[in-house]
């Protein structure tokens, strides 16, 4: 053994010693470090614990219902039944823990228009108003009960709910047609819009009344209803609220 070391060049021995020293120091240092610092699982458990312990700000609808049973009963009957209380009233964990801390909501128009102002990106059918023309001087709560928001009287105009369609129609050749030209609407539709639907035309002859070449109505785009796309119903190609014909007038179809 000593013979082997003697035969090694001294350079190797010296470098070897330095390396051994280095590796020993590093290993020793690592060994000295408490195991908990090197244990990923322990770190993760600690993080989960820390994360779980974070403070809650929103109490959750169940907590509200515990005390506010009556309001909840009203709410479950109305259109806002699926809204959480804190959607409008804000984070209320403090209030839930100590009722003396009041949960307040400003009864300003902006609190409602935030969701109900007309915005074209909003899904069709979501009730939207134009706040500039919709009773601009009144607070919403004067006519609508936020916990059961029914219109105070049956909406006068369809666009109260169908804002998107109304806006589209405004820039279309059909701008002057009232909705009732094409839709027959049961009175009940205004009260229970989902249960009682508005009627739509059922066949080509309805559109033909104005758009057929033999129609007496002037100033409309005319087609030969017998040959023009006879396989389809008109609204399978043309969206009636914006029939895609910007050259409104006497031009014939290409």
């Amino acid at each position: 053994m000593t013979g082997f070391f003697k035969r090694l060049p001294e350079a190797v021995v010296r470098v070897g010693i330095v390396f051994l020293l280095f590796i020993t120091t590093v290993s020793f240092a690592r060994w000295m470090i408490p195991a908990s610092l090197k244990n990923g699982r322990e770190h993760r458990t600690a993080t989960v614990k820390r994360e779980t312990a974070k403070a809650i700000h929103y109490a959750g609808a169940d907590a509200c219902t515990e005390c506010h049973k009556e309001i909840n009963a009203v709410k479950t009957e109305g259109y806002h039944r699926n809204l959480s209380c804190e959607t409008c009233h804000g984070a209320a964990k403090n209030h839930a823990e100590d009722p003396d801390v009041k949960a307040v909501t400003d009864k300003v128009r902006e609190a409602c228009t935030r969701c109900h102002m007309y915005d074209p990106s909003r899904p069709t059918g979501f009730p939207q108003i134009n706040p500039v023309v919709h009773n601009p001087r009144k607070q919403c709560v004067e006519c609508h009960k936020p916990h059961s928001p029914k219109p105070p009287h049956v909406p006068q105009e369809c666009q109260a709910c169908h804002g998107q369609i109304a806006r589209t129609k405004e820039v279309s050749p059909h701008v002057d047609l009232p909705c009732t030209t094409c839709h027959t609407v049961d009175v009940q539709h205004k009260v229970s819009p989902r249960e009682v639907r508005a009627q739509i035309p059922s066949d080509r002859s309805f559109c033909a009344k104005c758009h057929s070449i033999d129609s007496p109505v002037k100033e409309t785009q005319k087609v030969d209803i017998k040959t023009h796309g006879e396989k389809y119903l008109c609204w399978q190609c043309h969206y009636p609220h914006e029939p895609e014909l910007h050259s409104y007038g006497t031009k014939t179809l290409p």
Partner: peptide, 17 residues
């Protein structure tokens, strides 16, 4: 590293290393 060997063999080993 307190090396003392300046012999020709050691230099040859250095080059090989």
């Amino acid at each position: 590293l307190f090396s003392v060997d300046t012999s020709e063999e050691s230099a040859a080993f250095d080059r090989k290393a």
